[in-house]
Design a binder for these strands. Structure first.
Length: 416
RNA sequence: GGAUCUUUGGCAGAGUUGGUCGAAUGCACCGGUCUUGAAAACCGGCGAGGGUCAUACCUCCCAGGGUUCGAAUCCCUGAGGGUCCA
């Protein structure tokens, strides 16, 4: 949620920034208007309430003194009807405003480049040089099948398409990667947290997945519960509705969960292999910080994710997302793309975002800054997506006969 | 699953014949006096959100609904916790 007071105060400035992200100025004008209407409705309602409270007090006095109350009662009853009406108006305005305002994305940082889509993202740097192959490298799904690591058919049999099963070294590699990543993150000062994979609506609203992206979530039938699309949701919402002591910040957390996504709107994309699954494993980083330190922490998170890839000897590059590719809640995002020789391209393996106070405002996560309560900044990023890391290892470490060797850093984790 | 009790400010804990309770008290915390410094003692301050230049004012005593002119206090529903029974 953007700051509506700020929008009211500096409409031109804010709307200019949001228009870079393709937000319709008319929508913003409407929001501003509704916000003002709500304020008026609130003031009117509160005035009536004040009158009611005052009369109720008189009532007590009248009674004690044995005065006649019939005239007062008539006044009070009349006022009561007005209150009910005023409350109704206020509720309506509130709801209208919320529906509109919740649909507005975060304001992009000034240094986020303009652009339409991922083609306009800006490369920051490349890390490690892709290896030269003396043969034509295969794609991961072919290698996975050949080595007996991943079984696509039986995943479909158990659930539906976009599910798979891992066996033997494939399963082991998955587990090894999770442990390796969690340990690496812990070494960099991120506290390991194990969270529920099912959360309620409020949590998803707090981080911005709802109400806009309901179609992409698995909902538990008959309950106000959803499977998490990312550990970002439970980790960030841990502190929902709390006022944190300033000296405890920043909270730097890491957690491993499965992630569950319907992938609505991704029909036909990445149907081969495990690039895009309904259920996938991910190790996540989430930080809760004071506003002034969020940029530094952001860099730390990017560095950590990149270092993991370097430790795994996987060539990758960092790109800054342009305004058009920026997610709903992010003010700034750096993607890390890993080199896939089989596909002969870089593919996203991590996405690190600073949401500034956008999620904090929705989730009401604040800290005590001296006397005042202030919104924190929340940041999240993958370090890393496990399935895609497996894909990268398979493709980068393949031999001509289709066998795959394991990066040195993982050997202790593979029982080798 | 059944019965019963319980849910208050950072914590502990009053308040349940409905009005003067946003809420006693203790601890913690902050400021001051005293002290070489600290502790103790004493004095003062100390929940949150909205609103205002600042007041005023409004809202919040687990959540939602109801009774009433008026509810932390009464009623209903739900959630969490305790105890007993099965």
């Amino acid at each position: 949620m953007i700051d509506l007071k700020q929008l009211q105060k500096d409409f031109d400035g804010i709307s200019k920034k949001l228009m870079r992200k393709g937000v319709d100025e008319k929508l913003l004008e409407k929001v501003k208007e509704k916000f003002e209407e709500l304020k008026e409705a609130k003031a009117a309602y509160e005035k009536l309430q004040a009158a009611q409270n005052a009369m109720s007090k008189e009532f007590g006095i009248y009674k004690r003194e044995g005065k006649d109350i019939s005239e007062l009662k008539a006044r009070v009853d009349a006022n009561k009807i007005k209150i009910t009406q005023a409350l109704e108006v206020q509720r309506e305005k509130q709801e209208e405003l919320e529906t509109l305002a919740m649909a507005i994305p975060n304001i992009p940082d000034d240094d986020v480049p303009d652009g339409e889509d991922e083609a306009d993202n800006v490369e920051i740097k490349k890390v490690l040089t892709p290896r030269e192959f003396s043969f034509t490298p295969k794609e991961h799904w072919e290698l996975a099948e050949q080595n007996g690591w991943i079984d696509f058919e039986r995943g479909v049999k158990l659930a539906c398409s976009r599910f798979s099963v891992a066996y033997d070294m494939g399963a082991k590699l998955e587990r090894a990667l999770i442990n390796f990543m969690l340990n690496y993150n812990a070494k960099k000062g991120f506290t390991e947290v194990s969270v529920p994979h099912i959360v309620n609506r409020k949590a998803l609203e707090g981080t911005g997945q709802l109400p806009k992206f309901e179609d992409d979530l698995y909902k538990i039938e008959g309950q106000d519960l959803y499977l998490i699309p990312t550990a970002e949701v439970p980790l960030t919402n841990l502190f929902q509705d709390e006022i944190l002591p300033a000296d405890k910040l920043p909270f730097k957390m890491t957690g491993y969960t499965s992630c569950y996504r319907k992938e609505a709107g991704a029909a036909g994309r990445d149907t081969r292999g495990i690039i895009r699954q309904h259920q996938f494993h991910k190790v996540e980083l989430v930080c809760i910080t004071k506003p002034e330190e969020s940029d530094i922490i952001f860099d730390e998170m990017v560095a950590t994710a990149s270092e993991i890839l370097t430790a795994l000897e996987l060539p990758h590059r960092l790109v800054t997302l342009c305004t058009g590719d920026l997610g709903f809640g992010a003010a700034k995002t750096v993607d890390i793309e890993v080199w896939l020789p089989g596909q002969n391209t870089y593919r996203e393996i991590s996405s690190i975002s600073n949401t500034r106070d956008f999620q904090a405002r929705r989730a009401k996560i604040r800290f005590k800054n001296g006397k005042k309560n202030e919104l924190v900044h929340t940041l999240n990023g993958s370090a890393l997506a496990v399935g895609r890391t497996m894909v990268a290892i398979m493709e980068n470490f393949q031999n001509e006969d289709g066998s795959i060797h394991i990066p040195k850093a993982l050997e202790p984790y593979m029982g080798m």
